Amino acid sequence: MKAGWREQVLTVIAEIPPGRVTTYGRIAAMAEGATPRLVARALRELPSDHGLPWFRIITASRKLADHPGAAEQRQRLAAEGVLLDARGRAPAERMWP
C-alpha cells in the first residue's frame, strides 16, 4: 500500500462540493493506494471535530452506508438539497465528480 493514501483521501473529501455526493470507491480511485474500505477506515478514525463533509460520501449503490450516523447524514444531505428517493438512493445527477 502506498504511503500517503490517507492524506490524499482527506484532501479529496474536503473537495466534495455542497449539494453533491460521491462514493467510497470514487474517492479511493482518486487516492493512490486507497481502497473503498480504507476510505471508510480513514473516516472512522477522524476526531469528532474534524470538519470534513463526511456526510457527502455514500455507497456505490448511491445509498447511505449502515452506520450510527446515518440519520444525521440523511438530514445534512437534505439540508443541502440531496433528497433520497423511495429506495433510499441519492439522485444520479448529484454525483461528483
Rank of each mutant, 00 (worst) to 15 (best):
P53I: 01
L38R: 06
E7W: 14
W5F: 12
P68R: 07
E15Y: 06
G69E: 12
P68F: 03
W54E: 11
L77S: 00
M30K: 13
A71V: 14
R56M: 10
E45W: 06
R44E: 15
D49N: 15
R62S: 11
T23L: 02
R56C: 07
L84W: 07
A79G: 11
A42N: 01
G88S: 04
R37A: 12
R74Q: 09
A90D: 03
A3C: 11
G4V: 07
T59N: 03
L43Q: 04
A29M: 13
E15W: 12
P17E: 12
R94M: 11
A28C: 12
T59K: 07
L38M: 15
P53D: 07
V9M: 12
T35R: 08
W5R: 09
A79K: 08
P97S: 07
P68V: 02
L84D: 00
T35C: 11
A40K: 13
K2S: 13
H67I: 13
A29F: 13
R26M: 11
S61A: 12
L64F: 00
P18F: 11
I58Y: 05
P17M: 11
A3Q: 11
E32H: 10
S61I: 10
T11Q: 14
K2T: 10
R87M: 08
T22N: 00
G81E: 03
A86S: 13
D66N: 15
M30R: 15
L38Q: 11
R94V: 08
F55N: 04
I57R: 08
Q73F: 06
R87D: 14
